[in-house]
Structure formats: C-alpha cells, structure tokens
C-alpha cells in the first residue's frame, strides 16, 4: 500500500516535470510577446503592441509569409493525399509485382538528407523560371511527404474488409469507382489524419523553402521567422515572439484537438503494425 502511494507521487512528479519541460518555451514565448520589452517581462502590465506591429506593418511581410505557408501546405497536403490514395489502393487491392519493393523504396527515399537534393532542385527551378513561386515548393514537398502518406494510408486501407470491394465490383464498379465510392469514405478518418500530418510536414519544412524562395511573394513562415529583421536593425524579440505565437497557436490547438489521430497516423507510419 505504502509503495503504491510513493509510486503515485513519483508518477505525478514525472508527469508535471514532463509538462514543464515541453511547455516552458511556449509560455516564455507568450510572456515575451505580450511584454513591452523582452528584458522586463510583464513590467508595467501586458500589452498587445507586438501583435499590432507584426500584423499591421506591411513591410514586415508577416501576413505574406503566413498566406504563402497556408497555400503551399494546403496544396501539398491535398495533392499528396490524392496521389498516395491511388498508390495505396493499388498496393492493398490490385495485382501487381514488386509491391514490397515500392513500399521499401519510398521508405528509404524519405530518409535521404534533403541537402543532397537542393543543388539540383535550385538549378532545375531556375531553369524552369519557377524560383520564388508556389510551384517550386509544392512539387518537391509532395515528393518529400508522399512516402509517409503512402505508409499511413496502406495501413488504413489494409484494414478495410475485401468483401466491400467485391460487392462493389459485382455491382459493376471499376477499380477507380471502388476507390472513391467505397475505400475513401470508409477510410475517411485515416485519410483526414494523413492530410493533417502532410499539412504539418509541409508547414514545418525549412531547407527547400530557404533555397527555393527569395522574397515575400513565396517565402514561407519558418524561413520568414528565421530571417525576421526589425525595422531598426536590432533583433526585435517582442515582434518575433508575437509572430511565433500567431504561427504556433493554431498548430497547438489543432494538435490538442486531433492528438489521437495524429498519434495514430504517426505511429502507423513509423512502426507499422
């Protein structure tokens, strides 16, 4: 009995330490973003001034970066899920040689260091006149996120009973119809969590965006925040933290609401069962 109480106390202490470790940087970010000066947190009360500056100063381009990120990530996520659904359907349902080869080939590909692609991609996009456009980012993002999406979707599609397909085929459906009339609706939660993960991966991508964009017309938020310069030369920490807060708050909310789906998707992609 006594050791059980001790264990309970240890568990709670561990859980609290874990939460402090994970959340302190964010609490600090919010505190600095709401203070007039980064060296005096909360001195003279909290103020939304940094948020007003970041949102209301067009020359900082924060809203441009945010818009670019949202468009690029959404396009990448949608295209990735479409393409990965087709492939996952073929792998789980159709007769084809070399399925395992495809699966493990894309798994290996997803582990390549991104830096070994950027020289070629930079030249390719320059030759195509696409540097600093959404297309220059979306195309490599889709390729980069496809392996993970494929693995997650294969594990979801694989759980759908084959009897459903057979019934649809007996009713005269073609493979494409089976996919969008039967598989996709049944696997909808899996498809949505794949889309959400793909969005997060595209939203967080850094090195492609760093080398393939040159200014606010296509630059995404991670690069924008990494390069954020003040209006007057010094590092404007309050503004940077406000920009970071505006960027991270929606992701934190999404993560909290969809944590079960995200965890399920991630663990299926990594240690598939």
């Amino acid at each position: 009995m006594k050791s059980e109480t001790t264990e309970r106390i240890l568990l709670w202490a561990g859980a609290l330490a874990m939460a402090v470790f994970c959340l302190t940087p964010f609490l600090y970010m919010f505190a600095v973003s709401l203070s007039a000066r980064p060296d005096q947190i909360g001195a003279g009360g909290f103020t939304p001034a940094n948020y007003a500056t970041v949102l209301g100063t067009p020359s900082l381009h924060f809203l441009d970066y945010l818009r670019n990120s949202l468009i690029v990530s959404a396009l990448s996520a949608i295209i990735t899920v479409l393409i990965a659904s087709l492939a996952a359907y073929a792998i789980t349902r159709l007769e084809m040689k070399g399925k395992a080869v495809v699966l493990f080939f894309v798994l290996a590909v997803s582990m390549f260091p991104q830096v070994s692609l950027i020289g070629y991609l930079f030249k390719l996009m320059s030759d195509l006149g696409l540097i600093n456009t959404y297309a220059a980012l979306v195309a490599p993002y889709v390729a980069w996120i496809l392996p993970l999406s494929l693995w997650i979707l294969v594990s979801y599609f694989d759980q759908i009973p084959r009897e459903l397909d057979r019934a649809a085929i007996v009713d005269g459906c073609s493979p494409a119809q089976v996919l969008y009339k039967v598989i996709l609706p049944v696997a909808l939660p899996g498809v949505l969590s794949t889309a959400l993960l793909s969005f997060i991966f595209a939203f967080n991508e850094f090195i492609f965006a760093l080398i393939l964009t040159t200014d606010y017309s296509a630059r995404t938020i991670p690069v924008g925040i990494a390069m954020f310069q003040g209006l007057h030369g010094e590092i404007p920490w309050g503004n940077i933290m406000a920009a970071s807060a505006i960027t991270t708050a929606p992701i934190m909310l999404l993560t909290a609401v969809f944590q079960r789906h995200i965890i399920q998707g991630l663990t299926r992609g990594a240690v598939k069962g």
């Binding site: 994970c22 964010f26 990494a226």
Partner: peptide
Amino acid sequence: WRACVLIPWAIPSAVSARIWQLI
C-alpha cells in the same frame, strides 16, 4: 498530457529554434 508532449514536435523547428535563441 499527450497533447503537451506532441506540441514541441508539431511546431516548425525554425520557429522553436528562435524561441530557444531568446532563451
């Protein structure tokens, strides 16, 4: 608790690196 742990993973590293830079 799970969301707490998930959040550092979900945030762009470039953004969290800036928070660490200030830390």
